[in-house]
């Protein structure tokens, strides 16, 4: 009698305290839950901050000294600092978005993600939001430190436009990362090599260290598929005195293209995620570990 009452009480308490989430509420909770370790993780392991700021500063400094050695105009130093800061976002998208589901597969979490009653899109969105917040902090420190070290002078034309370009570039970039993440679902150890390969060629094509106007028009247009290409170009146009004269397209046109890329990549990510998840389940590749 006593035992059955206790059991009933427990059930009542559980019913009261464990409220089942569903729909948008579950979606948002999943986003927050996945973003949480990205933001909190870096507070707990501060050494990452050192490596993520120290390494780009080193690379950026080397390129700054190359420009100094060949007596480039001072604005190019600013271009390199800005490009160096944006490498943090590209690295984050490559290694912590695109490759993330591969890492999760390696550590055995991927199957749990799929089994859990939440949306994979929410998990990817959480990773993206957490990544943007954490990486913006790092990129900001790189810009501030680099600008102080090399005495970069800025001549911002329009802060609202600069902010709009940055936000749209981030949405498009992380949308692209979400799309890649779904493709990486099918990959095994080649995922690591593909991410490794997509660094220098992208730094080159996207003009991380020089204005892309110097490329042939069609090459620059092709490179514009990577959102950072136009994002960087527009930001340089808006932030430096000589930026506008070295811009590839007008800022408004670049804003329009970035908006289009944002929508395209987010929709493609949603479609591809569903398709790839089904394909990966059918081919039994969600839990494989080919090392």
């Amino acid at each position: 009698m006593n035992q059955s009452r206790t059991s009933t009480d427990l059930q009542t308490v559980l019913r009261q305290e464990v409220e089942k989430s569903a729909g948008w509420r579950l979606f948002i909770q999943t986003v927050i839950a996945r973003a949480y370790p990205r933001i909190i993780g870096q507070q707990r392991e501060k050494s990452w901050m050192f490596f993520d700021i120290f390494l780009p500063i080193m690379a950026v400094s080397a390129y700054v000294f190359v420009y100094r050695a060949i007596q480039a105009p001072e604005d190019y130093v600013g271009f390199v600092i800005m490009g160096g800061a944006m490498t943090a976002f590209w690295m984050n998208v490559l290694w912590s978005m695109s490759s993330q589901l591969y890492w999760e597969k390696e550590t055995g979490n991927l199957a749990l993600y799929i089994m859990a009653p939440n949306s994979m899109m929410a998990i990817l969105l959480g990773m993206a939001l957490g990544g943007i917040v954490a990486t913006t902090l790092r990129a900001g420190v790189i810009v501030v430190l680099g600008s102080l070290l090399f005495r970069v002078s800025y001549a911002v034309v329009s802060f609202p436009q600069l902010l709009a370009v940055f936000i749209l570039a981030m949405v498009a970039l992380y949308g692209m990362g979400m799309m890649f993440a779904s493709v990486y679902l099918l990959l095994s150890r080649e995922a690591w090599h593909i991410s490794n390969l997509a660094q220098e060629p992208v730094y080159l094509l996207s003009g991380f260290y020089f204005p892309i106007k110097n490329f042939n028009f069609w090459v620059a247009l092709g490179a514009s598929v990577i959102p950072l290409t136009l994002g960087l170009d527009a930001m340089r146009q808006l932030a430096f005195k000589t930026g506008a004269s070295l811009g590839f397209l007008s800022v408004n046109m670049e804003l329009g293209i970035l908006l289009g890329l944002s929508i395209l990549f987010l929709l493609a990510a949603r479609f591809l995620l569903r398709y790839m998840e089904k394909l990966a389940i059918r081919e039994g590749r969600l839990t494989e570990s080919r090392r």
């Binding site: 390129y63 190359v66 420009y67 060949i70 480039a72 080159l204 260290y209 204005p211 110097n214």
Partner: peptide, 8 residues
């Protein structure tokens, strides 16, 4: 990357 920087 270096070649383009230099040639620019």
């Amino acid at each position: 990357i270096l070649v383009v920087m230099y040639s620019v």
